[in-house]
Simulated assay, not measured.
Amino acid sequence: MSAPRNPWDRSGRPPARPRAPAPPSPSAPAEVRSAGREVRIHGLNAVRAVHARRPDAIRKLYLSQARVADLKPVLAWCAAHRVGYRIVEDGDLQKLAASQHHEGVVADVLREPMPGVQAWLDALPEGPQLAIWLDGVGNPHNFGAILRSAAHFGVAAILLPEHARLDVTGAAARVAEGGAEAVPLVRLDSTPASMDALRAAGFSLAATLVDGGDDVFARPLPRRLVYVMGAEGEGMDRTLAADCDLRVSIPGSGAVESLNVAAATAVLLAAWRNRR
C-alpha cells in the first residue's frame, strides 16, 4: 500500500514552516532532545494518541514500510498539513528512538504545557476526583505504566513536585500505550502550599506505605483523593507521609516485600474506583 504524498522535497529538506521552531537534529539522542520544547516518542499507540488528540503537535514522523497501512490516517494528515515524514529502515528507527522497542514508528512532537496546581484545580469539574502525587518516582518505564493505569481508571492528573525532573519521554510514552495523552501532568508548588490548595478543593491526601497503613480494601476512601506514591527504592518520604491525611497499605501474602510502584498504583486506583 502506498503512502500519501510526502511533502518533503527530493533533497530531504522539509518545507518552510514559519510558525514552527527549528527542530533539533534528527541524530540527537532522544534524552537530549526531550529537554526542549519537543520530545521524541515512539510506539504505535503513543503516536496514534497524539494524532487523535492534538495532531498539530506532530513535527516530524519516521516509520517503517510495514507501518504505512497502520498509520495511513496520520500520514494523510501530515501530507495535508505539510508535516514531513520519512519511511526508514529498522536500524534507523532504533537509532532515532534510542531503543529496539520502537514498534515501527518514531515521532517528534511538541510537549504539552504543564499547568500549575491552582490553575488545574480551578478548571476541575465538581464531584469525585482522583489524582496521583509522585514523590520521587524516576524510572520512565514505571512512569509509563502509571500513566497507562491512570488513563484506564480515569485519573484527573499526575501531580509532580516543583523540582521533579520526571516528564514524558519516548520510553514512558510507549509503555503508557496512549495514556500519556489522556492524563494531564500538573506542576506542584511547595509541598505545604500544594497540600493547602488540594485540601481547600476538597481533596484528602493518602500516603501509600509498604506496611503500617490502613488496609486500602477495608477502610472508606474519600470521594476526592490524592494518592501520594513514593520512589521506587526508598519509598515515601516519612515527613511527607506524616503530613498526609491518611495512610494506606496493600495487604499481601508476605512472600515478597512489596509490589513495585507501578503495580501498586494500579491496585490503589482500582480500590478507589471500586467504591465509586
Rank of each mutant, 00 (worst) to 15 (best):
F143A: 08
I250N: 10
A271L: 07
Q100C: 05
L63T: 13
P73F: 08
A164M: 06
W272S: 02
A218E: 14
L134W: 02
I250M: 06
A242L: 03
A164V: 06
A266C: 12
A80L: 09
V105M: 10
E257P: 00
N260L: 08
A173R: 08
G12L: 08
A173I: 04
G104R: 01
V226E: 01
D92W: 04
A16I: 07
L268M: 11
Q118H: 12
I158G: 01
A271P: 09
I250T: 11
L159V: 08
V32H: 15
P192A: 10
A176F: 02
I87F: 03
R19V: 06
R54H: 13
E89H: 11
E234P: 03
R48P: 00
G170E: 02
V226D: 05
R187G: 12
F143T: 03
G170Y: 02
G84Q: 09
H81D: 08
W133M: 09
E112V: 13
A69D: 12
A46T: 09
L61I: 15
V32E: 15
I87L: 11
V50P: 02
N274G: 06
P220C: 03
Y85V: 01
A193Y: 07
G212T: 10
L159G: 01
A176T: 03
I132S: 11
V88A: 07
N45I: 05
A264F: 10
Y227M: 12
P15E: 07
G202E: 11
G127T: 08
L44N: 04
R273T: 11
F143I: 05
D214N: 08
A271F: 04
D196L: 15
R111E: 09
V32P: 01
D56G: 14
A46M: 03
M229E: 07
M229W: 04
V88L: 02
R148P: 12
A176D: 00
G12Y: 12
K60Q: 15
N139M: 09
P113M: 10
L160M: 13
A263W: 00
S25E: 14
R86F: 14
D70S: 15
Y227I: 00
R33H: 14
I41W: 07
L71S: 01
A119P: 03
L124P: 07
R54I: 01
G36K: 05
N139W: 10
P24W: 09
A20G: 05
A123D: 15
V117Y: 00
R199M: 06
N260E: 06
L110C: 11
I158D: 05
G252A: 15
L63V: 13
G154R: 02
E31Y: 12
Q65T: 07
M236G: 05
P192F: 07
R275L: 11
G36L: 11
S249G: 04
A156G: 03
A79K: 09
A231E: 08
C78K: 00
V137G: 02
A30T: 12
R247N: 09
R276V: 05
P55A: 14
M114Q: 13
F153L: 08
R48E: 13
L205S: 04
W8S: 10
A76Y: 04
A173Y: 03
A98Y: 00
Y85M: 01
E177P: 00
V74E: 12
D214V: 10
S11R: 14
A16V: 12
D122H: 11
L160A: 04
I41H: 06
A66C: 07
A207V: 05
R67S: 11
R13I: 13
A263H: 15
H163P: 00
K95V: 14
V74F: 01
H101K: 14
